[in-house]
Amino acid sequence: MASVDSIYGLFPDPGSADRGLKALQSAGVRRDSILVMSPEPFEGYEFARSDRRSSMPWIAALGGLVGGVSGYLLAWYTQVAYPSRIISGGMPLVSKWPSGIVTYELTMLGAILATIIALLISAKLLHWKFDIYDPEVSYGKILIGVVDPASESRMDFEDRLRDAGAEKVKGTGRFNLA
C-alpha cells in the first residue's frame, strides 16, 4: 500500500473526532500536519476547520473580467474582420446592444470556468492516487491522523487516539497495522 508513513484513528462521531484532534495537538503535533477526512462537512467542529479563507470569489471575478473583455473583443473582431463591410438591417457594424449580450454571457462563462478551475486546483482534485485514505470514511467514520510521525511517538499517538474514542487505529507504511 502507501509508501507514506502515517498513523490514524477512525472516530464514530464528530465529538470524539474533536477530542482526537485535541489529543494529538496536546502531544505537540502541529495543526497543519494533522490529517482529517470526513464523510460530510461537519461545519462548526474544530477538526473540520479549513486552513485559511479562500480567494475563490476573487478568482471568479477575475475570470468574469477576462471573459467579458474577450466577449466584447470577439463581438467586435468578428464583425470588423469580415472580408467585406457587412451592412445588415441598417445597423452599425459593431452594434453596442447586441455586443453587450455576448459580453455578458462570456462574463458569466468566464466566472463559471474560473470557479471550476480554482476548485479543481485548490481542492487538489484530479489526483486519483492517494497516499493515505480509508474507505471506512464512506461508512460514516471520521479519520484523524498524523502524517510521517516520529517513530518514538508512535505508541503515544496510538494510545491518545484510542483514549479519545477512536474505534480503530490504523497506520500506513512502516506502521501498517491492518
Binding site: V36, F47, S50, S54, T115, A123, L125, L126, W128
Partner: peptide, 24 residues
Amino acid sequence: LGWRGTPKQWHRLETAMHIMAIAI
C-alpha cells in the same frame, strides 16, 4: 476525481457551490 473529504475539499466545494449559485 480523487475526493477524500478533507476539510479543505469540503470548504472549497461549498465556496464553489456558493459562487456557482450566485452566477447561475
